[in-house]
């Protein structure tokens, strides 16, 4: 299986990695900060954090292999055995689990014949239960190589893994126009862009639901002093007065007379501030 073998750290591979490592280390005032990127880099070559990869990181950073291993084993994204071409992670934290994530994981587990953190025999899919991935408004969520597959069902998830296994390009809901391999993803995470930032959408439906509702209803934040492009003092102070009026109009609970004379003190501070800003 291709994923279990890796090229030895010598010759062109070593030269290339040393160049990459130097570039990663140059991003930080202290080179040890490059350890996480370097571990991602090792995974981009070997498909996991290989023993030789650990030794490579240690040599680059002047650490012991024990120190590197201690770090590598702390983080869940660093794999201690060869990963599949695609990590398929189903969120089974509370909200996604209840919305159907548990059912999706069970379905995939049965369909693929693997459990958590196990890889299919063809080396294509590593199935994982993942923790909250900050897309709860799209629950249940599935991640493929850490791209978002929103609002999943057991059927949609099964179709995604089938297509991945058959080698078809598969597009995430929010992300690049197709999912890249685990190795390609790891190289990006090491800080080497793949030029795909402009692919895909800016936001999904749930992200903009509030924004669109505000447009429909004509709701806006107060205009503020800089509603005109002019930044001269007169426009600024006039604008600020308007801003404050709008504030009073809003129903937001704003005590008329806050304790500790907060309003008065605040007003003085704000006056000073306004003059500084203009």
């Amino acid at each position: 299986m291709a994923t279990t073998a890796y090229e030895p750290y010598e010759g062109t591979k070593l030269e290339r990695l040393e160049r990459d490592a130097a570039q990663a280390m140059a991003r930080y005032p202290d080179t040890r900060s490059a350890l996480l990127p370097l571990l991602h880099l090792v995974q981009s070559e070997d498909g996991y954090v290989s023993p030789d990869g650990i030794a490579f990181c240690a040599r680059q950073l002047g650490l012991t292999t024990a120190e590197v291993s201690a770090v590598a084993t702390f983080y869940t994204q660093y794999k201690r055995h060869p990963n599949g071409e695609y990590t398929v992670g189903v969120c089974t934290n509370t909200l996604c689990a209840i919305m159907g994530g548990d059912a999706i994981f069970d379905e995939l587990s049965e369909h693929l014949g693997v459990g958590h953190d196990e890889t299919t025999e063809d080396g294509k899919i590593t199935l994982e239960r993942v923790e909250c991935n900050a897309a709860c408004d799209y629950a249940p969520v599935m991640m493929v190589n850490w791209e978002f597959f929103d609002n999943q069902t057991p059927d949609s998830a099964t179709q995604v893994v089938d297509r991945l296994r058959s080698g078809e390009p598969v597009a995430p809901t929010r992300g690049a126009s197709s999912v890249c391999s685990f190795k390609a993803m790891s190289r990006v995470l090491a800080g080497f862009p793949d030029g795909r930032a402009d692919e895909g959408v800016g936001a999904g439906e749930a992200t903009v639901v509030g924004r669109r509702l505000a447009r429909e209803k004509g709701w806006t934040a107060p205009a503020g002093p800089a509603s005109a492009e002019s930044t001269d003092t007169e426009a600024s102070s006039a604008g600020q007065a308007a801003g404050m009026t709008r504030g009073r109009d809003s129903s937001v609970d704003q005590p008329a007379a806050p304790p500790q004379g907060g309003t008065q003190g605040g007003d003085t501070g704000r006056g000073t501030d306004a003059s500084k800003e203009s």
């Binding site: 107060p222 002093p225 800089a226 404050m244 709008r246």
Partner: peptide, 13 residues
Amino acid sequence: DRGVDWFRSMGTE
């Protein structure tokens, strides 16, 4: 960009 008063016009004290 829009000032302290503008920001404080929203929310609570």
